[in-house]
Design a protein around this nucleic acid. Structure first.
Lengths: 204, 204
DNA sequence: ACTCCTTTTTGAACGGTGTTCAATATAGCC
DNA sequence: GGCTATATTGAACACCGTTCAAAAAGGAGT
């Protein structure tokens, strides 16, 4: 029960988050528990609780990391497509494909991002909302480049429509609730969504 | 511990499912438990377990009902639009709006439908897969009516793209992860998705 | 009517969960 | 070197899903 200084609070935070991420590479979040994490990093459950506040807040911290990772992935995909002189549509498609790739490579992390909820009031902390907004503006900027005549509000709407669609495709394919029994469903569906939607959207 | 014949197994099944549905009108599934349901209907947890097999299978039975309800809602929305001489696009939009309406009126039931998973192997019983397929064919039929030249495979793909999009919009709006701070987000986004996508899709 | 068997139902037990909190042993300060 | 503040903990609490032996009632056969 003594004060140990094996790790600073920050190190401990990293340790815990890393442990969750490690577990979620192989097992679903429903199999995870605060006690297992504590056992894994060699501390007691209580220590994690007064570091994060609750198990739920620990998971929220993991989600923040995941969102950062996703943002970085999208940014990278867009930049790569840019360097290969891809059109804005191609850049968007690259981002969308990367998003689905991340989801299928880290299904448990990705699901935690959307299935984890705080209390019933669900006020979603502002720093997390900020992250989501930044992610959307990545898409909006490509839409604006694609169709300069579109207003900022039109881009906002289109970005949300498109990304909801991409997200929906990832969700349903990942859960096997779509049944196309063709390989590489993701890319095919995403291409259809983006090309048809954007072709007509540009006529506005 | 005697054999009671207060209810037949079927009645008991209905009782349990109704209890879950009642709870999910107000509380999230995470707040629910087998013991609470048992207490609610006046039986022991064990009785429910050897009726359904496990808590998870009880929830699956609830999901089957939810899928049936959703199917019925969509069918009704399409029929209503038909009777008002709505175009296939309008029928699809009516179905999509009804879908989102159901989701926002029964958020906990709806989330359970997508967040509940069986064991890790996830083989999703065939009778449940059948239900999903029937639901998709509702959409495919409208697409075929809209664009008779399209092949069955093109309709299959389009139906899945569209419905993934609708589903994604519902998910993100429901979780407040989309931030459009305009009222009635759902309908606006859905209209954008359907009109832009379908306009170009018909040119195929 | 009385047995005997089958079947339904249960309470208790097991190992797990997140969370609380008094007790505690150390690190840092005077 | 002693004092205090604090990080850390183990034990306790109230839950959870699941298992299973025990028990009681229904039905069948005589």
């Amino acid at each position: 029960m003594p004060r140990r200084q094996d790790h600073t609070p920050q190190e401990l935070t990293e340790l815990a988050i890393a442990s969750v991420q490690r577990h979620l590479q192989q097992t679903a979040a429903s199999q995870l528990s605060l006690r297992k994490i504590a056992r894994d990093i060699g501390y007691s459950p209580g220590t994690l609780i007064n570091l994060f506040g609750s198990y739920s807040l620990l998971l929220l911290a993991v989600n923040a990391r995941t969102l950062d990772d996703v943002h970085q992935q999208l940014q990278q995909a867009i930049r790569q497509s840019e360097q290969q002189h891809g059109s804005p549509v191609q850049q968007l498609e690259a981002a969308a494909n990367r998003y689905c790739q991340y989801a299928s490579q880290h299904p448990h992390l990705w699901r935690l991002l959307f299935e984890h909820r705080l209390a019933d009031d669900e006020p979603l902390p502002t720093w997390q909302a900020q992250r989501i907004d930044t992610l959307f503006s990545l898409i909006e900027s490509r839409l604006s480049a694609l169709h300069p005549a579109a207003s900022a509000d039109q881009c906002r709407t289109a970005a949300r429509v498109i990304w909801s669609g991409v997200h929906g495709i990832c969700s349903l394919v990942l859960d096997n609730k779509i049944f196309l029994n063709a390989g590489r469903d993701n890319d095919h569906l995403i291409h259809s969504l983006l090309s048809h939607y954007l072709t007509d959207w540009c006529r506005t």
